[in-house]
Design a protein around this nucleic acid. Sequence first.
DNA 1: ACCGTAGGAGAACGTTCGTTCTCACGTCAA
DNA 2: TTGACGTGAGAACGAACGTTCTCCTACGGT
Lengths: 183, 183
Amino acid sequence: MDSAAARERALDAAEELFYGRGVQSVGMDEVRGTSGVSLKRLYQLFPSKDLLVEAYLERRDTRWRERLAAHVDRYEDPERRVLAVFDRLEEWFAEPDFRGCAWINAHGELGATSPRVAAQVRAHKRAFRAYLARLVAAAGLPDAVAGQLYLLAEGAMVTAGITRTTEPAARAREAAGVLLRAA
Amino acid sequence: MDSAAARERALDAAEELFYGRGVQSVGMDEVRGTSGVSLKRLYQLFPSKDLLVEAYLERRDTRWRERLAAHVDRYEDPERRVLAVFDRLEEWFAEPDFRGCAWINAHGELGATSPRVAAQVRAHKRAFRAYLARLVAAAGLPDAVAGQLYLLAEGAMVTAGITRTTEPAARAREAAGVLLRAA
DNA sequence: ACCGTAGGAGAACGTTCGTTCTCACGTCAA
DNA sequence: TTGACGTGAGAACGAACGTTCTCCTACGGT
């Protein structure tokens, strides 16, 4: 197994475990067991657990935003594209291993003690918010609407994570529709 | 120091530390140091750390909802009372030691591994949501609006916790105003 | 005064975990 | 063939931490 493959496997295992059970309740030894990558190699690729956590969050950030954009790009109508964000949320919430927003969870767990994780979370949320702002601007709507929709989306994520239902997405979408019409 | 006073001090310290830095990064020894309650007494009052965590969340839940209700009760107009929820959020976000919603944070940290904490978080959120529903019903508005406002409030909490600004409260309040007018 | 009990300070115990080390094995270059 | 090197399995190390234990002091009832 070459270095790149080991890295992917390690990140796959890290993501599954850290996201599924929280960072602090997963030991490096379990990452080794799940990934099949030896401890020695793990520490070559990621010299500390902190760095593995950062890499996990970073890769997940890229993928999460790509999947969102891919979903939105199914549509052309600018207003429909805004609402597609909430459709994507619903799809996400329905995934069998969904356990809430990885960044909100990581912030709750590590935000107070790890400035780097806190910064990654802020960057991720800033990027999401900026994306929403672009969609709203493309629909010719005032920027304030983006902030409102952003709060709805965050509320839906956190609520879906706690209740383990997809329903918050539909509710947020309804509210978003009202806000769009009112703007 | 009698037993009741020791209990209060222990809970004060637990709340300050657990809320401020997260549960898992605070040891029982630090709770002892901050509270001035010896380990022996701590374990008499709370036979395990888990039970101390539960007691912390429970006491905070009671107080948090009392303060919210007290703020809302300043007003009589039913619609104003609904909006007062967001005023209270802004006040909360501005507190100097504000670090996001304790239950969202606890859920991110422990929700996946502690069913009891997860249940407490769900109960707290259910209670908040039910309170909002009562305010909305008293204003003669459809129940669906309560769900929408709830998502706005949760989004504001999570965003304020991550960005450490009070601004999400004002944005959520604006959006809430629009939703109320549209209903 | 005397004893039983409670409490405080802090050592001690056992476990977990991040990280490093040991050792044996296989591979490839000279 | 030999020897340097990379790797894997897992032991080992050191720290942190939840929990319990030891020992000493102080007090309340007789």
